[in-house]
Design a protein around this nucleic acid. Structure first.
Lengths: 205, 205
DNA sequence: TGGTTAATATACCATTTGGTATGATAACTA
DNA sequence: TAGTTATCATACCAAATGGTATATTAACCA
């Protein structure tokens, strides 16, 4: 009848939800366990401190979320630059209004905790580094395949793209206006097209 | 010997500093007055609640900061687009490393409080709307004067520019690497140049 | 000058918080 | 099956928090 993995996962899930809605400081351990069928005893069995729970969210939930939403889908596109543009659009379309108003979970936690706790800082930094590096890989491939002008710097573009993806969420959260999302989408699209080119015919075969 | 305005200002200043460093929730009223020569009695004489203090910070401190840092300096440039680029550079250069690690005060407070308290949300939204609108004015002027291509949408560009200005701070805060700031600066510059043009000779005179 | 009000200090409180000590129960193992 | 351990529940606590009640002092005004 007992299922430790499930139990831990349910705490982690409830905690993420609550923290996403109300912020880390404003979410109490009591509220978290209140969202589950468990009690405080179970909580502190799996996480020796509230901060430890936060670390687990960064390490497991946020990292996985970034990969699932922003990175893995890119593999399906022949032109990675088109992939980045399309995915951005898809995410706008598929994100419910409620989440728009809540912003990006990674950015929320970073702004709140990064300058206050060095362990949080390192873990959240790692997630963003991963996000950027994986984006950079696709941009490097895009340049090699001739979709990008030869003088573009993939790392620089990756940093800019990720910053826009996060910044767009942050701004929409603040302004509470989904139209702004489309406006920013248009600008990012314009920027990426300005550094793109039609791929020349490959020498291969 | 008493100076109410000065007293209020000193509370507001200490509060801004402390909240900028540790976040709103993690800053207690006791810590704020501890940073001044006053006591809790004075605090609650000027701000009937801790939230009220936060509202005052948004209304007075943050709004003034945006105007002073991002808007007013633009008046000195003949080409507003060049002004935006130059100011961005100047702010990178003049912002101390400590502040880089703390991010943008407006963004910090927004991410933490906007989805939790509707009054905060409205006040912070107003600050950002002002930021965008004032930027838009300069971009409109730039287009009229021929510095921007005629088909650019000043509102759209303004939203993008402000998002980059804020998002850059957020990303640098997360990555703790000032070099990233220059990387983002380069991308913004490239973007703005891609929608610029050499001004045609005016018909005037 | 006397009294009223504004400005600031001091002492206190109810509530909430993260965390602990300990108890109970299920599961696994020898 | 007995005993050990992992899993979860319950009851409790010290500290900190936002806020209040009240005292004190400075300033202004009639």
């Amino acid at each position: 009848m007992r299922d430790p993995e499930r139990t831990r996962a349910s705490i982690l899930g409830a905690a993420f939800d609550e923290i996403y809605h109300r912020g880390f400081h404003d979410t109490s351990v009591n509220e978290i366990v209140g969202k589950t069928t468990l009690t405080k005893g179970a909580f502190f069995h799996y996480f020796s401190t509230k901060n430890d729970l936060g670390y687990a969210i960064a390490d497991e939930v946020l990292k996985e979320m970034v990969l699932e939403r922003w990175i893995r889908p890119l593999a399906a596109y022949k032109n990675p630059v088109q992939g980045i543009i399309s995915r951005f659009r898809k995410i706008i379309e598929s994100t419910p209004d409620e989440h728009m108003a809540l912003g990006c979970p990674l950015n929320n936690l970073t702004q709140e905790m990064s300058s206050v706790d060095p362990v949080f800082r390192e873990k959240l930094r790692a997630v963003m580094q991963l996000w950027i590096s994986e984006t950079e890989k696709y941009l490097t491939k895009a340049r090699e395949q001739g979709y990008l002008k030869p003088d573009v710097n993939p790392r620089q573009v990756a940093e800019f793209v990720v910053m826009v993806e996060e910044g767009a969420f942050a701004m929409v959260k603040n302004l509470r206006d989904k139209k702004v999302y489309w406006s920013l989408y248009g600008s990012l699209k314009g920027y990426l097209e300005s550094i793109s080119q039609k791929p020349t015919e490959q020498l291969s075969a």
